[in-house]
Amino acid sequence: MIEEAIHPKDIYLRSDRFPHIWCPGCGLGIVLKSYVDAISKLDIPLDHHVLVSGIGCTARLPGYANVDSYHTTHGRAIPFATGLKIVNPELQVTVISGDGDLFNIGGNHIIHAARRNMDILVVCVNNFNYGMTGGQHGATTPEGARTSTTPYGNIEHSFNLPYIMASLGASYVARWTSLHVRQLTKSIMKAMKMKGFSFIEVISPCPPNFGKYNKFNDGLSQMEFFYENSVLDNNADLSEAYIDFSGKRPLIVGEFVQRIRPSYIELERDLIKRAMEEP
């Protein structure tokens, strides 16, 4: 019944680089799976897909997908992707990076990309800490959580990512956990077909860092937390959708925003047309 074989998704991967660098129980492989699953099902030519990332564990993801990929500097994936997309709108530009990369060091860029309604998809894998550097606290670390730099518990208020992105006018905003694999795949497919700025937050376990400091002994125990506390609510009041790990509040997931608003590329092409027609 069991035999060694080639994984059907290997054609979408740089399989010579496997096994990947991520720790056992890390949710990033699942996000990669969802991404390749989505691009394999969509009618967008594979050659048009471009993956861009900043720096961090999540940012290593594009290096494993068999598409054009760019591993840029810390926090700057979105402006890099902006340049790519404006020059060649045919490209399906997806930024997959971590919470630290996108919302701490790169926070300025993501709010402006959302404001412009730039035609890119941003998948933010949120593990509530800086995984690659050893689990330091960041803007998404829940209040009270322990990390390697908040040994007495985090006293700072944390970002509520879907709430921020929805307030900035993003065309599509969703949140899933890495347990919601099928929903995540469908969400990526839907977001790639949307015009304008799409944002998907994926809540993901980080067993050796955030997990270890917060009584999740392995990836599985954090996944179990997602399983028990996730509540699907597409119409959720996003101001209440922040996350803590007390288990006292639901972990709200769903597709919160889907709206049609002129996208940057549409508006820019129109501007160029007007300027070129000027005598």
Partner: peptide, 8 residues
């Protein structure tokens, strides 16, 4: 298959 992070 969907949940395996390692394509294993």
């Amino acid at each position: 298959e969907a949940i395996c992070p390692d394509f294993a």
